[in-house]
Design a protein around this nucleic acid. Structure first.
Length: 1048
RNA sequence: GGGGUUAUAGCUCAGCUGGUUAGAGCGCAGCACUGAUAAUGCUGAGGUCCCUGGUUCGACUCCAGGUAACCCCA
């Protein structure tokens, strides 16, 4: 019936077998066929960036995704089973450039955009294939051939339609923005990227005079480390709250902050002091007003207020060049200042800067200084060390540029917020984070001056002075309106070009304002547009609206929380609000970050990151999945091989051993679940009904928690259950399975059926989380008539009739008493193998009494005592102290509780005795019942006493000769069993035992218990022999025993 | 500056709707159990449950204020 099971689970090897089995048996396809047409459950996968190998952090999310999908499939739902890849964006470009050895946009242009874009596509294909393999290794089930790619035509054109809707509402616009810029790569650098590239460098810093127009002879003195920005000077900023000083320094009279006077050298003399606010509005002459390109700033040069100005660096007066700095640019907007933009993409001065024109900004410091010196404006120079941002890719110092970018006006944010509120956020604070982001975010910058990405469908008129533009809503519209370049864009009609650069750039349309020709802006789109449109593009919104409406809003999405509020979640909600004004999903589960075992961030450079493949092959996918699933998603997860070993040992080892135990004995006994006589649950012993009841409680928890999308409490309960199954149910019932004499066939059948039912149900219950090992166990335990794969089974539903809360409670009481009694044995120095006469338990509670009496034999067996006596109190044995139980007293007496408590503590001995005996007493005028107090036993002669909660327990530690002998006999059994084991005997092998000892007591014990002894060790003969030379000497207590066993 | 999260044993974390003896795992020491288990159990040491105030008979838990760390935004 059952196949022999290896003693260790061999998880990793087993997983590879299961993968083959799935492949061969078409298990996944059969699941889809089985569920086709059933109620839908819609999951929307957040695309994984197809730009590298999967990390263990990806595996966390993918475990959730797979576990929930498997659960809802087992629970009888039809699913789409689609997952996707994020394909377009700078991250792919950067890797391709690196592979090709490129360092600048010029390299790409020389290589050819078409070729470059092709390389990007190839990289995506390569890594999406790798990630698919890795996901399969993790056990993820998906319709892999039908995975979506955000670079697909469908995805890109659906974004076009989104942008068209935005444009129809007048929300698309172009504006200048200042950003860090790498002149070598010719691209803007995001804030995030910028943070990665700081380096300490030394520059020439200059002090420059800006002569005040209405105070001849006086100048503002400014300080800057970037002389190249001075030709773009527009204003000078002071802190209105700082004090500024008019200082005579050498031949000049200059204004600086009072705190900077020391920097002017010896002999500086303060002539006057005013607050910064007193300087605001003064006009001055700029340092390069003679340059034609700087002319538009000339009239505007004035002092402005800025409270960020400090005087720890420089002079307390800051040179403002809005075309060359982020803060400067923002100030210019605020103060309506003109903007002078001195340099182009490559960091080279535009026309109109005369001696600077055509030169690189990074190389003109000396020329600028010479010019200033010639004009008498240079006050002094100094060498200055500072942290300066560099390009994280090529190491070039960054410049700041003001650039035209395209935006979506987000003034309609309240519409999005309304949809945010319709979503269930797990954890709940996610909603606040998203709303907070929506409140504070600026307009959405959607353009990037790069090559590989969504071709923004914005067509702008190129004719001089015409600012007309329009947005194309799709391929058809573009085709209709194209006036040239369509053929080139389409290429081979049988295999047309994708809507990517450079081909799409060929198409031109007619300007509806001036009749000229409008071209596509060359920018590509923000990649979050690509991912945000997924609920529309991948669910056939354009092709089949009816189908779409059946699957959207999705029931569930899950992604890592950090970052996604302004990325994927934001894009999803924004785009869906614009498209249909609905939330695209109903429930969102966010999870935190994966850290290393010590809680530190994983980094390749730190050497503490773990590759997915290594983790899967070392600790197994199931163990990984267990680690992820048992974790509270809001907390960062510390992942490593140590925790993996723990889980493998504690959970998988225990589960496997329980399974192994069952199969070993089932084979030995020929137990066949399909033919063995059924034993109705009601007729099985308490312990069977107990484990079945607890199983149903676990089933109930699993269903509730999967549907609530928070499974870690279920996982913890499952761990507890597996422990109880192995270390209580099986341990306590071993004898029932090992019954070679066949004394109680019915009872043995009950035990087999019970354990079989528990193992098969547990297997199905855990299948969504650990699909591999459950598949293997199912494969061996399943009935011929049942599904071949565990994943084709129905998910268990709690059989309420089997739930026996009372029995669960009773078992808990029994376990508590057993545990406390073991502690007493420990204290008394009496090993469990030594039988004791009596365990006496005192409890006033009717429920506890019933529990102990019902499970009496279980307790006496477990504790190896001859008798369990349950009394209302141990009054005749011990004395007591009583303590108040606030839970009941508080409810009864409220404010009076402290007085009652005092009365209880001071209760006289007879009253305590009475309470311990289970009778109410009156203390200090209050009625106190036994439930209101905790009784603690104090002393007893010849007994070890203690308590378990409210229950008093006492263990008789006095040993009679009979007990002593029995204890010795059990020691001997134990030793012989060990010898059997060491000799490699099978459980069923028969033996012959010869022994010898000097101890009369031991001999007597052995002879008294010879029948028992021979039965236990499968001995056909047991006899005394003299001077054994080939046996083994063991020690029973302090006496030596010589034993020889012979196999027959 | 605004928003969010977290704070419990040496470390990593549980702890539902308030109940006076706050738990687990790892680690350390000792003991026990075992013919499924290189498994496991028990015992011991280790805690001002971040601080202050409030509500309450009673606060790790609820409320207010503060501190620190991290994250997001500015």
């Amino acid at each position: 019936m059952f196949q022999q099971v290896p003693p260790r689970p061999g998880l990793v090897a087993g997983e590879h077998e299961v993968l083959e089995f799935w492949e061969k048996s078409r298990a996944f396809d059969r699941l889809r066929e089985k569920n086709a047409g059933k109620p839908k459950w819609s999951f929307l996968d957040g695309p994984i960036t197809a730009n590298g190998f999967m990390g263990v952090h990806h595996a966390w999310g993918r475990t959730y995704k797979d576990a929930f999908q498997r659960f809802f499939a087992m629970a009888g739902h039809d699913l789409r089973w689609q997952q996707g890849f994020d394909c377009q964006g700078l991250w792919v470009e950067v890797q391709v450039e690196r592979d090709l050895g490129f360092t600048s946009k010029r390299d790409i242009e020389e290589y050819g955009i078409a070729e470059f874009v092709q390389r990007c596509k190839e990289r995506v294909w390569k890594y999406s294939a790798i990630q698919t393999e890795q996901s399969i290794r993790l056990g993820m089930w998906s319709d892999w051939p039908n995975s979506y790619f955000t670079m697909s035509d469908e995805n890109n054109y659906t974004i076009w339609s989104f942008l068209k809707r935005c444009h129809e509402r007048g929300l698309v616009y172009k504006d200048l923005d200042a950003m860090p810029w790498c002149p070598r790569c010719g691209t803007g650098i995001s804030e995030q990227e910028r943070k990665e590239g700081y380096k300490l460098i030394e520059d020439t810093a200059v002090y420059v005079r800006f002569p005040l127009r209405d105070h001849p002879g006086e100048s503002l003195l400014i300080w800057t480390t970037t002389p190249w920005t001075l030709p773009a000077n527009v204003a000078a900023a002071v802190n209105p709250d700082l004090t500024y000083a008019k200082v005579r320094a050498g031949d000049h009279i200059v204004w600086v902050s009072k705190g900077s006077v020391g920097k002017l050298g010896k002999g500086a003399e303060i002539l006057d002091e005013v607050p910064g606010s007193g300087l605001v509005g003064r006009r001055y002459d700029g340092p390069f007003d003679e340059l034609p390109a700087a002319s538009k700033a000339v009239e505007g040069h004035r002092v402005i207020a800025w409270d960020e100005v400090a005087d720890t660096e420089g002079t307390g007066i800051v040179h403002i060049a809005p075309g060359c700095g982020k803060e400067d640019f923002d100030l210019a907007k605020l103060e309506s200042l003109p903007i002078v933009m001195p340099i182009d993409e490559s960091g080279i001065y535009f026309d109109g800067f005369e001696f600077l024109t055509g030169r690189k900004a990074s190389e003109v410091a000396d020329a600028v200084i010479a010019s200033l010196n010639g004009k008498g404006l240079l006050f002094k120079t100094e060498r200055y060390k500072h942290d300066y941002p560099h390009c994280w890719r090529c190491g070039t110092p960054l410049l700041f540029r003001a650039v035209d970018e395209w935006y979506i006006d987000m003034s309609w944010r309240d519409e999005i917020k309304a949809n945010v509120r319709k979503v269930r956020w797990i954890p709940e604070y996610g909603e606040d984070l998203e709303l907070d982001w929506l409140t504070n975010m600026g307009d959405w910058m959607i353009s990037k001056k790069r090559y590989w990405g969504l071709a923004l469908p914005i067509y702008e008129c190129q004719d001089h002075g015409c600012s007309w533009f329009d947005v194309m809503g799709g391929r058809e519209e573009l085709k209709e309106r194209a006036v040239e370049g369509w053929q080139e864009f389409e290429g081979d009609p049988a295999n047309p070009h994708t809507p990517h650069r450079p081909w799409v750039d060929k198409v031109k349309i007619r300007c509806e304002k001036c009749g000229g020709t409008a071209s596509r802006i060359l920018d590509v789109g923000n990649p979050w547009l690509d991912a945000g449109i997924v609920p529309y593009s991948t669910v056939h919104y354009n092709a089949d609206r009816e189908y779409w409406s059946q699957w959207v809003p999705a029931d569930f999405v899950t992604e890592s929380f950090p970052g996604q509020f302004r990325n994927w979640f934001y894009a999803l909600l924004t785009m869906s609000t614009m498209m249909e004004d609905i939330p695209p999903f109903k429930t969102l589960l966010g999870y935190a970050l994966v850290r290393d075992e010590k809680g530190e961030e994983m980094h390749y450079s730190k050497g503490n990151s773990i590759e997915f493949d290594l983790a899967a092959d070392k600790m197994s996918a199931d163990v990984m999945r267990w680690i992820y699933s048992r974790h509270n998603p809001t907390q960062n997860l510390n992942f490593g091989f140590g925790i993996g070993e723990q889980i493998e040992r504690k959970v998988f080892g225990t589960l496997w051993n329980s399974y192994l135990f069952f199969v070993n004995y089932a084979i030995l006994d020929g137990f066949d679940p399909s033919s063995a006589p059924a034993v109705p649950v009601a007729e099985r012993p308490e312990i069977d009904r107990w484990i079945l009841s607890d199983l149903q409680l676990l089933v109930r928890s699993a269903n509730a928690q999967f549907r609530d999308f928070l499974i870690y409490p279920f996982m913890r309960k499952a761990e507890e259950f597996i422990d109880q199954l192995s270390n209580w149910y099986i341990r306590r019932n071993r004898q029932r399975f090992w019954d070679p004499a066949g004394t109680n066939v019915e009872d043995k059948a009950a035990a087999y059926h019970t354990l079989y039912e528990v193992l098969t149900a547990l297997t199905r219950l855990l299948a969504p989380v650990i699909p591999f090992v459950t598949e293997r166990i199912h494969g061996n335990l399943r009935l011929e008539s049942g599904p071949e794969s565990v994943h084709l089974c129905d998910y268990p539903v709690a059989e309420e009739a089997l739930i026996d809360e009372k029995l669960s409670y009773q078992m808990r009481v029994a376990q508590q008493v057993a545990s406390a009694a073991r502690a007493l044995r420990e204290q008394a120095g009496q090993r469990v193998r030594q039988p004791l006469a009596e365990l006496r338990v005192g409890t006033a509670s009717e429920e506890e009494r019933a529990a102990l009496e019902a499970l009496s034999s279980l307790i006496t067996d477990e504790l190896n005592v001859k008798k369990l006596t349950v009394q209302p109190s141990l009054g005749d044995l011990t004395s007591f102290t009583v303590k108040p139980n606030f839970r009941t007293l508080g409810a009864k007496y409220g404010k009076e509780v402290q007085k009652v408590a005092a009365a209880v503590r001071e209760a006289p001995a007879p009253a305590a005795q009475q309470l311990a005996a289970g009778a109410p007493v009156e203390l200090g005028g209050y009625e106190v019942t036994p439930e209101d107090v905790t009784v603690q036993t104090v002393t007893a002669e010849g007994w070890a006493v203690g308590s378990a909660g409210q229950i008093q327990i006492a263990l008789d530690t006095r040993l009679s000769d009979e007990l002593r002998k029995e204890g010795l006999a059990r020691d001997v059994v134990r030793h012989i069993q060990q010898l059997r084991k060491d000799s490699g005997l099978e459980i069923s092998d028969r033996i012959e035992v010869t022994y010898d000892t000097d101890s009369e007591a031991l001999t007597e014990a052995i002879e008294t218990w010879r029948g028992y002894l021979m039965g236990e060790v499968q001995a056909d003969r047991l006899h005394h022999g003299e001077q054994l030379d080939d046996g083994k000497v063991v020690h029973v207590g302090t006496t030596a025993l010589h034993i020889r066993i012979q196999s027959k």
